[in-house]
């Protein structure tokens, strides 16, 4: 069982010759309409959320609910929410979890992927052990029991340790390491460099783009996770941001809203507050995105799994 990932840099687009774009006029019109609709369908919800978060009570009343253009924009919702302390605390928890989790994951994944890129007897079975986990995933119940047996319940370690290494990310990194030209590595070896020195001075610098993408994947998954917090953290005062968004927006909307987290009461939530929380939980991703997005097109992620 092998998984080959295509990590060669692919060009952004193929060079177009004049005869290529002779699609019928109808097709071209349909294309423009389709793409405009797709882009609008992605962008409009975000705009509506941001607009509503800045809306004043008056705007909300006039619109009867959600707003597309606030006439009297206000930062009130953000002020109330950040003063309240619950969101601020959850934000810090999420930032901490994401930072520590991503670091731990990168160290563990890189080290294992690099090790597995060597041809040493005994490592092929290890690779098989990894690949098999992609085929048969242990379910919720046994995973919960293991975390419980390890005494990790109600600790932040429970949100990091069980998801430290993602098998797919591991395979992508290993594949990338294996495609580094052997001559470069050999010349370093002849000069007396050991595996760690080669990793630090040759392999890592050459792998910066793929490392950046894998780190982004990890960061996003730590930032976005909510179920493991629901499963492993009983005390809602220690919840990360996604759980608070769920509490405010998804549960608040259907139960009327008021409740308490860690003794602090939640303001009777209305749309601007809810949407402000959504914005706060989304902004880090949107800020990070443009910096890493260019690596996607450079083909690192063609990540095609094929055999």
């Amino acid at each position: 069982m092998t998984i080959v990932t295509d990590v060669a840099a692919a060009p952004v687009g193929r060079v177009r010759l004049p005869w290529m774009e002779q699609s019928p006029l109808m097709v071209r019109i349909a294309k423009v309409i389709l793409l405009t609709a797709v882009v609008a369908a992605v962008v409009l919800p975000f705009i509506s959320v941001v607009a509503t978060s800045f809306a004043s009570d008056q705007d909300i009343q006039q619109a009867g609910g959600y707003v597309l253009i606030p006439h009297q924009p206000t930062l009130n919702a953000y002020r109330v929410i950040l003063q309240n302390g619950i969101v601020g605390h959850a934000l810090l928890v999420s930032i901490g979890l994401t930072t520590v989790g991503t670091l731990v994951s990168m160290v563990m994944t890189t080290s294992m992927a690099y090790g597995l890129s060597f041809q040493v007897r005994g490592l092929r079975p290890v690779l098989f052990i990894v690949l098999f986990t992609m085929l048969f995933v242990p379910g919720i119940i046994p995973s919960y029991l293991v975390v419980k047996q390890l005494n990790l319940l109600n600790s932040y370690a429970a949100l990091i340790l069980p998801v430290m290494i993602n098998a797919f990310n591991l395979i992508v990194l290993r594949q990338f390491f294996m495609e580094i030209p052997q001559e470069i590595l050999d010349s370093a070896r002849i000069d007396g460099a050991g595996p760690l020195r080669i990793l630090r001075h040759i392999v890592l610098p050459l792998s910066a783009p793929v490392m950046a993408v894998v780190a982004l994947f990890y960061a996003v998954s730590y930032w976005n996770a909510f179920f493991n917090a629901l499963l492993y953290l009983n005390n809602n005062a220690s919840w990360p941001l996604q759980m608070i968004v769920r509490l405010y927006v998804l549960q608040g909307a259907f139960s009327g809203g008021a409740g308490s987290v860690g003794g602090e009461s939640i303001p009777a939530v209305t749309q601007p507050y809810q949407m402000a929380v959504v914005v706060i939980a989304t902004v880090p991703i949107v800020l990070l995105y443009p910096f890493l997005q260019r690596y996607f097109t450079s083909g690192v992620l063609s990540g095609a799994i094929k055999g």
Binding site: M108, T109, S111, M112, Y114, G115, L116, F118, V120, G122, L123, V126, I129, V130, T133, P138, S143, V146, L150, L161, P162, M164, I165, A167, L170, G194, P195, L196
Partner: peptide, 16 residues
């Protein structure tokens, strides 16, 4: 050294 690099990850997969 190579085996030591692989070991923590192997333990992770075995445990979780």
């Amino acid at each position: 050294v190579v085996l030591a690099l692989v070991l923590p990850g192997l333990l992770y997969f075995l445990i979780f």
